[in-house]
Amino acid sequence: MFIEKLRGRPGASPLFTHYDETSGSRVELSGTTFANWVDKTVNMLDDLGVEAGEPVHLDLVNTDPGHWVTAVWVAAIWQRGCPVAERDDCDAALAVVGPASGIRGPVTVMCSLHPLGLDLPDLPADCTDYADVLAEPDTHWEEPVPPDAPAWLPDITCAGVERLPGSDRRLLFTDPPPGWESVRMLLVSPVLGGGSTVVVTGAPPERISRIASEEKALLTRVGEAP
């Protein structure tokens, strides 16, 4: 149902907006654009040999939990029929890391975290550049998984994700913390409920208030009910 809800969003309606005040960037992804990135990433996972059911160590949820690329990867891993692992102790088939990470897996994809998803100027020799995803087809396909299949290790199942409450609000979060709770509120909740997310990182309080007003978004915190 999560992937069905994602693909059923109105085309031009914003789903995920990310302000990175360090770089001075604003990236807004509509439901259609977000789903397109997800489809390309699923095809990349397939090309890299990741099979359905194999854990993917998504280190981005620890280092960059509020980035739009992190949210795309979560959705793509689920669409491929794989569970997300926060830690590297799960015999993962693949590690997905940011540019400053020293973590490596059997296969490692490194993400530049550039606002437009551009390539890394100094890609380590033992990594694949996530920018290669731009050459992938955006053909949609998804792996069917049973309700009791793991979605987030160690103990959140696909059925558990589907039972989470959704939100139809436009919510703004600042510097969200690492881990599952941020994914639940920034990605799962708006997809299931038809709402949208604005994430702001590295901004002073007065700037946050201005962005909230401009985006017509309710400022909240991860873990709080809107």
Rank of each mutant, 00 (worst) to 15 (best):
F2P: 09
A85S: 15
T22V: 13
W141H: 11
V74W: 01
A92L: 05
L113R: 05
M185Q: 14
V38E: 13
E28I: 12
V133G: 09
E21H: 13
S182W: 00
P204A: 05
C82S: 11
T157P: 10
E215D: 12
L186K: 01
G105P: 02
C90N: 13
P124K: 09
R207E: 06
S23L: 14
V107L: 11
Y130A: 15
L153N: 11
G194A: 03
P177C: 01
G98K: 12
R163P: 03
P144R: 12
G81A: 09
V96G: 00
P226A: 07
A203L: 06
C82W: 01
E224W: 14
E215W: 06
A203H: 05
D126K: 01
G117N: 07
P55Q: 12
D148V: 09
T197R: 00
K216G: 15
M44H: 07
G179P: 00
L186M: 10
P204G: 02
T157H: 10
V183Q: 06
E181A: 12
W78E: 09
S189A: 15
L94Q: 04
V199K: 03
P14G: 08
S13E: 12
S167T: 15
P176T: 01
P55I: 11
A100K: 14
V145T: 12
D168H: 09
G31R: 03
P144Y: 11
P146F: 03
W141F: 08
H114G: 09
F173V: 06
V222T: 00
P146Y: 06
R210S: 08
D91M: 08
G8D: 10
P154G: 09
I208Q: 03
S30M: 09
E224F: 12
A95L: 01
P146V: 09
D39Q: 05
S13N: 02
S30C: 11
V188E: 00
E162L: 07
I103Y: 00
A35L: 10
